[in-house]
Design a protein around this nucleic acid. Structure first.
Lengths: 343, 343
DNA sequence: GGGGCCCGTGAAAGCGGTTTCTCGATTATG
DNA sequence: CATAATCGAGAAACCGCTTTCACGGGCCCC
């Protein structure tokens, strides 16, 4: 006892009672204590009572680490995300965490800082600590993703729709979503639009671009400019000048954050929304309806993504077959930031 | 080997190579493999090379669980929060996670769902999985907190300033913050204010109420109404009617979320902000400056809270003495949602 | 040339649980 | 009354890794 000093690291020697101590105090074997603690005890009730008594007296609770090692499961899942400060991802995390908790699972968060190259390593490291991992909007290359989805199993992938990955996948149809937004603007009478592009590497940005191409093909009498902007409010704010310069009557922002920043920048410059310029976002973050003017956007069910992700994850860890993949269709949320262009 | 079937749970039997297998393949003992993997090897270089080779061939990486058990540390900390969907808490988590990651620590999130009674249990459970825990704005009673702060050590407490807890504490001076906001409104000429109260049990709400009492004492010629509202945008939206009914010329919202909701509700009813009614928030969430009108609020350094929390946590896990506690002073962020009342 | 010292490596004892097996003591059965 | 079946509980192996301790071999020095 006195031998191993200075190794008073964590829960170990810092007072936490061990199963052996409880066993000794109750005058039984560790095996019996284990059985009592896990409700697998079938012997004489008084023995169980003695054990419970001893456990209570020592304020014993099983070492989670040791238990996990013996059992081979941690009751935790990892959540890898490119940027935890993005409200959209926070919403997914929040609902995932709440949902998983109902089944006794905890979530370990890992922020990759938008680095496509770090991601596979971080994922592997995180995965080794947990029973499974959720890859949320991974930025890694498709080849890496295919490999990772296999190597990290059980895995659930959010927002990277690919037939090549074997893991359950939940995605958003950005392509059709942005097309709907564009069409909405077109129907209002806009013929000159501008799209504020997201981060260069972003897969969902490419999906939006595809959607806009679809739109252009089906409506040749429209002009659609593209502006490299980014994914944050700051980016939208800074882009205001460029947007005005295009002369477009309506702007499609990469997401709500960008839209909010853009509106702020426009207002600063005396451009009225929607009278002078219509603006749309994407995501329908909680704030979208509260800013003024309330933002017309494409609603993405972030909470639902978290719930569904866990639902599939639960199936996987139980060795059941997970539900089908789904491609969520964004819902047009028409509010006040869009209107017909001035005559 | 064939004996233990059907226990193919996690990283265990699912293909992951063990240190023993690597050792065997390299023709050395597990001890040597361990030393090589941890850079503690001092023997012949070719032996190390053989080990590395074998490890690579088997795609070996140490089982984190087993390692943690042997070492007595998990390199993970828990983060307990009342409601993960609150942007203020998300900001803390985000920066805490990023900061801790630089030292190789991961964060396990636990959402207590605003339950004061569940909290101590959740905290204990989470703590047992990690090396330490951050209690963010705990809702538990002060007695519980005092006990928890001791039992869960190492602990860092955010937003519950108490001389009775021994753990490092980071807090916000809501009391003086709200007083500053009230004074700002007073200086603009407002003499009839209304405060939109936060959740009943919230300690920070009580602090705000104290600050307002200070304010009332020092400025007797002001009328200050109080309205039970809540902490979310929805609550603010619903309170709009009541706020108007008070006849006040300025409203102090519990936080930015409430303020945003309130403004939305006011605009719906044709009440202009700030011409007809001034509105202030609290927190300075990222959106505050982007809504329109940009929100006058008291800025709270959430990112800094995360950074400082980790800084203290790091000291604790290293058995060093943590930096001093700090009481952050909110900074008045004067924007466009407040103005002089109409004459 | 023999004894003492390093040096490199392995054996084994943990870390704190879970679980299979086994065994002695009852109880049921012929 | 002998023996089989049952039951309660413990011994020990195991999960996978770390680390202390011990041991054998080569080198140095007297």
């Amino acid at each position: 006892m006195a031998v191993r000093e200075g190794r008073t690291t964590v829960a170990s020697r810092s007072g936490a009672a061990t199963i052996a101590e409880v066993a000794q105090r109750a005058g039984v074997s560790p095996a019996t204590v284990s059985r009592v603690m896990n409700g697998r005890f079938v012997g004489e009730p008084q023995v169980a009572e003695r054990v419970r008594q001893a456990a209570a007296e020592l304020d014993y609770s099983p070492n989670h680490l040791a238990r996990s090692l013996a059992l081979g499961e941690t009751k935790a899942i990892a959540f890898l995300v490119p940027d935890l400060s993005n409200p959209a991802f926070q919403a997914v995390l929040s609902s995932l965490s709440k949902t998983a908790a109902k089944d006794g699972y905890r979530v370990l968060v890992v922020d990759s800082g938008e680095s496509p190259t770090e991601e596979p390593l971080l994922a592997a490291e995180a995965r080794r600590r947990c029973d499974a991992i959720v890859l949320c909007a991974p930025r890694m290359s498709e080849d890496d993703l295919v490999v990772a989805a296999d190597a990290l199993r059980p895995v659930v992938v959010i927002n990277r729709q690919t037939s090549r990955v074997s893991a359950p996948t939940l995605s958003i149809d950005y392509r059709s979503g942005v097309e709907s937004l564009a069409r909405h603007l077109y129907d209002l009478g806009h013929r000159h639009l501008v799209f504020l592009e997201g981060p260069e590497g972003s897969v969902s940005n490419r999906a939006r671009l595809l959607g806009l191409e679809d739109f252009e093909r089906s409506t040749p009498d429209v002009r659609l400019d593209r502006l490299p902007v980014g994914a944050g409010s700051e980016d939208g704010l800074l882009a205001a000048g460029d947007v005005i310069a295009t002369g477009a009557t309506a702007a499609l922002a990469f997401n709500d954050l960008v839209a909010v920043g853009l509106i702020g920048g426009l207002v600063e410059r005396g451009v009225r929304v929607p009278e002078d310029l219509s603006v749309t976002g994407f995501d329908d973050i909680p704030f979208a309806r509260y800013i003024s003017p309330p933002l017309t956007t494409a609603s993405v069910p972030h909470e639902e993504l978290g719930v569904q992700a866990w639902s599939r994850m639960r199936s996987l860890v139980r060795h059941e077959t997970p539900e089908h993949n789904v491609l969520f269709q964004p819902r047009l949320e028409l509010r006040k930031s869009t209107a017909a262009p001035r005559a």
